[in-house]
């Protein structure tokens, strides 16, 4: 009877609680699983230190190596486009900031909506380019399995539904917004159990890489 409004309230209520709970529990399990495997103490006399080189690598890997860019510009550009589009839309859209403020007790300034809107368009374009790249680049095509396409969909849907909801292109609005929230809930639920985990584990991975190299006196 009141489908779209009930749907919106369900996505803003029960479904949100459940998915946030699964996300947090799953994330913690995954992080514990990783860290519990430990790393043997390195008995070789170090040439350099671990901590700062580790931090340095966390930062430096954000920029691609020039050689890689020359060989695979599309991978790099599409990657940047969609990551920036995604992060700007997620973190600098005022309604989202209000949600974070409610969750964490603090917020930050946002960007005017037209800028966020442009970022979302870039993000969508970047994701489409990334998909095309995955389907045509021989290396990516060979590497990709169903999970890669699943996480693509999980990432694409929030951007798409968010864009459609913001521009009120799906009617009625409660349905549009409900779909947007649902797409994020889907993302949250599957996040800890897919390679979406890289969002967090890349900091660990980069740190290990930088620390192990730093110990040998190499900036990685």
């Amino acid at each position: 009877m009141n489908e779209s409004m009930d749907f919106l309230l369900w996505t803003r209520g029960t479904a949100f609680d459940v998915s946030v709970a699964i996300f947090i529990v799953g994330m913690l399990i995954r992080l514990f699983e990783i860290v519990s495997l430990g790393r043997g103490r390195d008995l070789a006399a170090p040439r350099g230190t671990e901590f700062l080189p580790g931090i340095r690598t966390i930062l430096s890997r954000t920029l691609p190596y020039g050689g890689t860019f020359k060989r695979q510009p599309l991978t790099v550009i599409a990657g940047y486009l969609f990551h920036i589009g995604l992060l700007v839309s997620l973190l600098l859209f005022i309604p989202h900031i209000e949600l974070f403020r409610e969750t964490f007790g603090f917020g930050w300034p946002g960007l005017p909506n037209p800028i966020v809107d442009a970022a979302a368009v870039l993000g969508i374009t970047g994701l489409l380019a990334a998909l095309w790249n995955r389907l045509t680049n021989p290396v990516m095509k060979m590497l990709s399995d169903s999970e890669d396409y699943l996480v693509w969909i999980l990432t694409f849907l929030p951007l798409l539904t968010g864009y459609l909801a913001y521009h009120r292109m799906i009617n009625p609005y409660p349905l549009a917004m409900g779909l947007h929230i649902l797409s994020i809930e889907l993302l949250l639920v599957l996040f800890p159990f897919t390679k979406l985990m890289h969002t967090f584990t890349l900091f660990l991975a980069r740190w290990y890489n930088g620390a192990m190299s730093g110990r040998r006196g190499v900036e990685s």
Partner: peptide, 14 residues
């Protein structure tokens, strides 16, 4: 732990 972190992080970007 590094191996687990590495595999968790790979997105098959090639």
């Amino acid at each position: 732990a590094p191996v687990a972190a590495f595999f968790s992080s790979c997105v098959n970007c090639g």
